[in-house]
Design a protein around this nucleic acid. Sequence first.
RNA 1: GGCCCUAUCGUCUAACGGUUAGGACACAUGCUUUUCAAGCAUGGAACCCGGGUUCGAUUCCCGGUAGGGUCACCA
Length: 455
Amino acid sequence: MNPNKQNGVRVRFPPSPTGYCHVGTARMAVLNYLFARKNDGHIIFRSEDTDKERSTKEYEEDIMESVKWLGLDWDEFYRQSERTSVYVHALQTLIDKDAAYVSEEESKKEAGQIVKVVRLKNPNKVVKFQDAIRGEISFDTTELKDFVVARAIDDPLYHLSVVVDDADMGITHVIRGEEHISNTPRQILIQEALGYARPIYAHYPLFLGADKSKLSKRKGDVAVRDYREDGFLPEAMLNFVGILGWTPPSGKEILSLGEMVQEFDIKDLHKSGAVFDMDKLRWYNRQYLLKKDDVEFAAYALPPLENALKERGVSWDENTAKKLVQDLKERISVAADISESAMAGEFDFFFADPMPDLSHIPQKGGSVSDTIAHLESAKNLLYKLENEAWSDAERIKGAVWEYATSAGRGAVLWPLRYALTGKDKSPDPFEVASVLGKTAALRRIDNALKILQTV
RNA sequence: GGCCCUAUCGUCUAACGGUUAGGACACAUGCUUUUCAAGCAUGGAACCCGGGUUCGAUUCCCGGUAGGGUCACCA
């Protein structure tokens, strides 16, 4: 009857568009995707927007966009709000079979108002089902009473629409979070009353916050878009989310989507909840960032640097910035790190001469007169270095290395580095000098010398 | 509270009755061309408790404890 019905594995992505795409939603999509693609199955994206008050188009789009961003796709799309007639038909069938009834009662949402909700006649039995991850689970459904399945004959509730759609769309495997375990018996009751076949259920554990409770907005970023804005790469997010709560047989920790599909087996999903560890996500992101070549990395890293510097009023220079790419690449895990340190002024000295603090110019315990001598010597050595060599940190180093070694590296190199950066912490002086170029580097050394000579 | 699920380093996990309980992230220390970062090396760090079953339990069973989920006219 339904053209969508066919043999083979069929799964669904059933998000409720009542908020931006949550990492839990992302995981639901990843797991269903892996299972479906591994088994040459079909994926149905079903927007569960039966809650008219909380569902929005914006959220629905965000969820679809986020899922695609992760590199996933689906084969069919439905929106429950457009399928009301299907649910009305099912509800009527239930009533006709005397398995449900319309109940006139006072609205629980609006006091004083009388509504006609539809309640399922509870057979009050023990429902058992086989969970593909947890084994047999059984419930006594008596405590559920005659639960409500629709606010009105044409206004179905979640449990009804899910059961009807899963049957109508020929869903073979319901892979969802464990928060749905206790929803399963009531859905099975509806299913049995309607005479539908039972799909295979698999309930995977939840992502936990650092305090081990359910991940929530209050405890930090949970929307995929937030991670995306911070500069997390989709491959990193996908890898991390995919492997949290699942260990592939190979034991590999860095896997592409294709590799995950190859290795996926629902039986390998874990039973207990896993803490969503930001540090590990950052580590994953760095691993994928390291795979980018300089051009790709520049496109990734420079915009946030430029924005941050402009915001704090530091003049921006594209050429200088380009020379910074290598250095940035070796010290960040995610783009947000650049914004953060740039906003803290960590990169200012590359673009504007620093204001060295007299007391910081000499190496710890070094005298002013020695420091002046060292800086003068370094300056003279660098002055002689031909212009072409200034783009190469190694050659700059070569120019002063011998002197620094004989005079004491710390005594020479600290003042040199500090003169160039005005910072206690920074990349090494040769790296910095190669970014600054000859003119600026010598000017900064002179400047430090002037400060020292005022003593 | 009722019902359901779960239980190995701080975190993610391997182990499928016999192991010096392995790896990754994080952490500590050291090394590398001064500082920082990165990198490399080394190190500390776990079987929730109590009963069984067994020659032998981290592993199997039961109980307890702890954590989580769920008890809507949300999904």
